[in-house]
Simulated assay, not measured.
Amino acid sequence: MNDLVDFEALRQRVGIKWARAGADVLPGWIADMDLPVPDPVRAALQRAAAGDLGYPDWEDRPDRNPLQEAFAERMRDRYDFAIDPDDVYVFTELIQVLQIVLQLMTRPGDAVAVHTPAYPPFLQTLEVMGRRLVPIPMIAGEHGWTFDADRMAEDIRRNDCRALVLVNPNNPTGHMFDRDELSAIAEIACRHDLFVISDEIHSELTHGRRQHIPIATLGPEIAGRTLTLNSASKAFNLAGLRCCVAHVGDSRVRAALDAQPPLLYGQVSALSVLATCTAWRDGAAWLTETRQTLTGNRDLVAESLPPEIRFHRPDASYLAWLDCRALELEQDPAVFFLEHAKVRLLPGPDFGPGGAGFARLNFATFRPVLEEMLGRVHDAAQKHLNR
């Protein structure tokens, strides 16, 4: 799959990743994979398109969407976590859930804690909605990323935080919070009566033997104040279908959601539900192969970068958080590499506090594409250093 790649065919794709790359530019920015859609998903969608595209049999019962049981099965099988399918809500995408819950459960001026650097649309949501960001700085150590739990607790207390947005695995660092870290976070959330929005969309893209731990599995008290968000969009490359789920363990949030008109927030399509259910139930072999490909790509990134660009191999995901500060660039690294390497990355400053001097690279592509991308980055950095 990686040996022969038609670069021009990739440039003809209509998705945003390649369509907005620009002439002769290689895209390593938005979090889409270039890899093909899983065969079982493709076949299921083709059968549906050739047959019945009428109203789904759950059309008049949005509280009985097939994804509710499918997600409950997946949480039970992967994490031995028993959840009630009735507590699973279906939405179009994670950012929608974040905005709905913040609208229902907080007021303008309320403080929301987030590990930073952070996914830019989450930061933009807080700003547009008038919620105060309380950053929890991620700290780069010798062996990877972590954070200061004592500082987190003090900042949450001092700012009287209402909610915590937990992105696990973290975007952009790829750090997977371990049991001790999650236990500390859970204790802080319970002590300060936070409701927790846990974005776990990258959780199935783990490397090696690392195991994701949903924070809601740590006990009934934290489970009772957590919304666990997930989707097949990242792990199975289905972002354009617009479909995600939220297990709402917090009864206060369930009551607020249930009080809304049933279709106020729209409804997912029958095809997106079909694709997601098929991916979760029939996509295991594809996911195993894809994880192996991504781990190889991750290691290639680490081996190909010049030593002046520091990079901690992520525990999960296909995102490389590149520390370019040693290059002493006079411009943002993403701007520099677009201009001098024809490689499009996401700018680090977009990720908020802790992002200056960094850029995010998406390595979920075919090997020849990644090799060319990394070669361009390496050559541009070396030319700058030798100027």
Score class of each variant (00 low, 15 high):
66 P>R: 09
345 L>Y: 04
337 F>R: 07
278 T>L: 02
295 T>H: 09
203 S>Y: 11
178 D>W: 01
113 A>N: 08
276 T>V: 00
129 M>L: 13
102 L>F: 13
260 Q>R: 12
84 D>I: 01
206 T>S: 13
259 A>K: 03
336 F>T: 10
190 C>D: 04
91 F>Q: 05
180 D>R: 07
292 Q>Y: 07
260 Q>D: 00
93 E>M: 09
232 A>G: 10
26 L>R: 06
33 M>S: 14
181 E>N: 05
267 Q>W: 11
213 I>W: 03
198 S>A: 15
242 R>M: 11
10 L>F: 10
60 D>C: 03
68 Q>Y: 04
31 A>C: 03
387 R>L: 09
23 A>T: 15
181 E>I: 02
265 Y>V: 01
216 A>D: 05
352 G>N: 03
75 M>I: 05
141 G>Y: 10
222 I>Y: 03
379 D>M: 05
293 T>N: 05
63 D>C: 00
86 D>S: 14
101 V>K: 00
373 M>V: 05
226 T>M: 08
123 L>R: 04
320 A>I: 09
378 H>L: 10
170 N>L: 01
378 H>R: 15
227 L>Q: 13
217 T>M: 08
303 E>L: 04
149 A>P: 07
136 I>M: 05
17 K>I: 06
255 A>S: 13
275 A>I: 06
233 S>T: 06
64 R>Y: 01
236 F>Y: 15
272 S>K: 08
246 A>S: 14
269 S>A: 14
169 P>Y: 06
250 D>T: 05
214 P>R: 09
134 V>L: 04
231 S>Y: 08
262 P>Q: 12
46 Q>F: 01
374 L>E: 04
69 E>R: 13
85 P>V: 02
356 A>W: 00
89 Y>C: 02
26 L>V: 12
21 A>F: 06
350 D>C: 08
148 D>K: 10
27 P>A: 11
51 G>Y: 04
292 Q>H: 13
148 D>Q: 04
296 G>K: 09
157 R>N: 07
378 H>Q: 13
311 F>Y: 15
283 G>E: 08
40 P>Y: 04
377 V>W: 00
9 A>P: 00
157 R>C: 07
349 P>R: 11
109 G>R: 00
257 L>N: 02
126 L>Q: 07
209 R>M: 08
54 G>F: 07
176 M>L: 15
